[in-house]
């Protein structure tokens, strides 16, 4: 599997990371180095093997369906780069 520049651009888009066009060839080449390394996994016979979900074969615990906290709006917003009137503020989303 070889990654070309347009695939690299697509992956950057999916990851929501802006990559300038002139940086794409180097990025594609790094991806190919790493994927080349990962390709070794194709040598392993994984027929009938279950993919691991968790190292401990356990069902995730469920807590009681009750309110455990809340009323912390000021704390929730304390670290926001732009908070106004009790909300997170972002650029216009809907035209």
């Amino acid at each position: 599997m070889s990654i070309d520049q347009s695939t690299a651009a697509k992956v950057a888009k999916l990851a929501r990371i802006k990559v300038e066009d002139d940086a794409l060839p180097a990025l594609a080449s790094e991806f190919n180095t790493i994927l080349g390394f990962i390709e070794q996994l194709n040598e392993v016979d994984v027929e009938g093997v279950e993919p691991m979900v968790s190292v401990e074969p356990m069902r995730l615990k469920r807590r009681e369906d009750v309110v455990t906290d809340g009323s912390q709006q000021d704390k929730v917003l304390a670290n926001a780069p732009d908070a106004r009137e009790g909300f997170f503020a972002v650029p216009k989303v809907v035209e």
Partner: peptide, 8 residues
Amino acid sequence: RARKVRTL
């Protein structure tokens, strides 16, 4: 595939 190898 990687998760299966992890099992092994």
